[in-house]
Structures are given as C-alpha cells and as structure tokens.
C-alpha cells in the first residue's frame, strides 16, 4: 500500500528527528500520509469484521468440531465432507430452488414496476413530496416487520386480503394463502415485489435525474416520439444505474431471511425456506451434540458467498459498458 513503513523511512531519512516532530505537531503532513491515516482505520475495520469472518467461514466449512467453548472436541480437517453432506441434503437443494425462484421472479418484475414508478415520480406535481414519501415508504419498512404485517393481512381466517377478494366476488370464503406450499411461495414473492419496487424506484429515480434535460429537448425538436426518446435516450443512459439497481436488489433477495422467518417460518413444510433460512436453521436450530450444525452452516454460507459473487460477476460482465459516461 502507499506509504508503507519502508517508503516513509526512506523519505524521512533526510530529516532529523526534531524537524519530524515539529512537522507532526503542526500537522504539516503530505497528501499521501494523510490518505494513509484516513484509510487505515476503514481498511482495518473491514479486514476484521468483513474479510476475516468470510475466510474463517470457509476455514470452518473444511473442518469438523468448529465448536463453542468445548475444547475437548477435536478440531479436525475433514476436507469436503461437510460439502458432501450439504449436497446430499434434499433440503439444501429445495432451499436453493426457493431462493432462485424468489430472486429471479421478483427482481425483473421489480425493475419494470420500479422504472414505471420512477418515471411517475420524475415529474413535478402538487403534493409531490407527500406522495413520494408514501410511495417510497415500503422500502424503509423492516423486512421481518413487513413479514408480520403481511402475515396478518393474509391471515387464513381474518385476513383483509381475503376480505377484499370476497367483497369484489373473486373468492367466496377466506383463502389460506400461506398454508398452501406453492401459493405461499408466490405470496412471499409478491410481498417482496410490493416492498422493494419502491427501492428500485428510488435508485432509478436517482439515475433519471442525472440525465441532462437538453438531450430530451433536442430529441423533441428532431421530432422523436415519446417512446423513441425513452428507448434511445433514457434506457441507454440509465444502463449503469440499472446495473447498480440489479446488484443492489439481487444480492439481498438471494439472501432473504427475515421475510420467510416472519411470514411462514419457512413453511408449510419447506415451501418457503430460503437458502439463508436453511443455513440459519442448520447452524442454530439443531446443532446436535457435536455442534455439527456450525460446520454444515459454514459450508452452506460459503456456497452462498460463491453464488453471490458469481451473480455479481455475471451482472458486471453483461451490463458494464465503459463507453457510457
């Protein structure tokens, strides 16, 4: 890194100690020194709380007996045994399927709805700020509390969604949305679309407002239709923002935990058990006498890391275009 100890020693070699002290007392430090001073805390912090735990999880996934305060347990290297156990677990594949469905159905729909919402919020109108606060509010809602809200709205006996559907004549009696495996998964996906469309809109709105107005003006002068202006100006210039929005949404969606936990507890059966819920349950709910759960949980967490990085890589590779902006 810039300004490593050796560099500094070489540079400071010419100065005597007194001069160095005075320089520091007056804080006349160079740009590079200041940069090192400002960046070191952040990098150390991330190293300790972000990077080290990830590596430790990979390490733990290759061992048995990753246990808590039981030094009698042997801590042994077992190679890929934990992964073999994971990949032969039908629940793992089910959870992977649930997470993939949930992610790749909800995110594209959110993107389309979010774009519409962003275009709506781009224009100025009366009471805009009140409307905007209301429309963006679902984004700020805690996922697990959102889950509780919808668990009540979709309650099998007293749910208001059933109530409305009965009133308009679609249903004749309350419908147990969350008790039927497939319907529970669709409901969960729908709920996340309801909540995170506002987040998509927020990001895309940011991208839209950074497109200069004169582009639209000159396109209008040239007689470009509304659709052509959208297709030839808005979409290409919005591409980087769409990339950010997709990464920002896909990765959290793939790591959904609070919503299934609070809405259905992963049920009925395992119909809404996402990958992270599976991991958490493997690690904490049934650790067993040898705390094998932590080893299995670590293996699952490592798989999640790999998939998340792969998703990010694919997005960046397909959508990153250095020509734009």
């Amino acid at each position: 890194m810039a300004g490593s100890p050796t560099d500094e020693r070489v540079r400071f070699g010419e100065e005597d100690l007194r001069g160095r002290l005075r320089r520091y007392r007056n804080l006349r430090i160079t740009e590079e020194e200041l940069a090192v001073a400002l960046l070191t805390p952040v990098l150390l912090f991330l190293l300790a709380v972000s990077f080290y735990p990830i590596v430790d999880t990979v390490w733990a996934s290759l061992h048995s007996g990753y246990v808590i305060q039981t030094p009698t347990q042997p801590f042994e290297f077992v190679g890929i045994a934990n992964y073999e156990k994971l990949f032969t677990d039908a629940s793992f594949w089910n959870a992977l399927g649930v997470s993939l469905f949930y992610t790749f159905v909800s995110v594209p729909i959110e993107l389309v709805f979010g774009l519409g919402l962003a275009l709506l919020l781009k224009s100025e109108f009366k009471w805009k700020y009140l409307a905007q606060a209301a429309i963006l509010f679902p984004w700020a809602l805690p996922t697990v509390i959102n889950a509780k809200i919808w668990a009540w709205l979709l309650n099998p006996e007293y749910g208001v969604i059933s109530d409305i559907l009965v009133r308009v004549g679609i249903l004749s009696s309350p419908y147990p949305f969350l008790s039927i495996p497939d319907v529970a998964l669709y409901s969960m996906t729908g709920i996340t679309i309801w909540k995170t469309t506002s987040f998509m809109a927020l990001i895309l709105l940011a991208g839209l407002s950074s497109i200069p107005d004169h582009l639209y003006e000159s396109a209008r002068m040239d007689g470009a239709s509304r659709w052509r202006r959208f297709r030839d100006i808005t979409l290409p210039l919005l591409k980087p923002t769409i990339l950010v929005a997709l990464i920002f949404r896909t990765l959290p969606a793939f790591q959904a935990f609070g919503l299934p936990y609070g809405l259905t507890g992963g049920g009925p059966g395992e119909a809404t058990t996402t990958l992270v819920l599976y991991t958490q349950q493997a690690a904490y709910n049934n650790p067993g006498p040898t705390n094998g759960g932590f080893a299995l949980g670590s293996a699952a967490a490592t798989v999640i890391t790999m998939i998340a990085l792969a998703i990010a890589l694919v997005y960046v590779a397909t959508l990153y275009d250095p020509e734009v902006r």
């Binding site: 810039a2 590079e32 200041l34 735990p53 690690a283 670590s298 967490a301």
Partner: peptide, 28 residues
C-alpha cells in the same frame, strides 16, 4: 487526495459490499 493504489483500495472496499451477511455470522 492523490496517492498510489487509489483504485485498488476503492475496489477492495466496494468488494466488501458483495460479501453475504450470513457468511460472517458464524465466526463473529
């Protein structure tokens, strides 16, 4: 500020954003 390896430092910091939260849970 001007200093060496600026882009690399930025990329390392941004890379941390891609690492799943659950993968830090068990060690911490």
């Amino acid at each position: 500020l001007r200093f060496q390896y600026k882009l690399q430092v930025l990329l390392i910091i941004l890379f941390a954003a891609l690492l799943p939260f659950v993968s830090r849970l068990i060690p911490l």
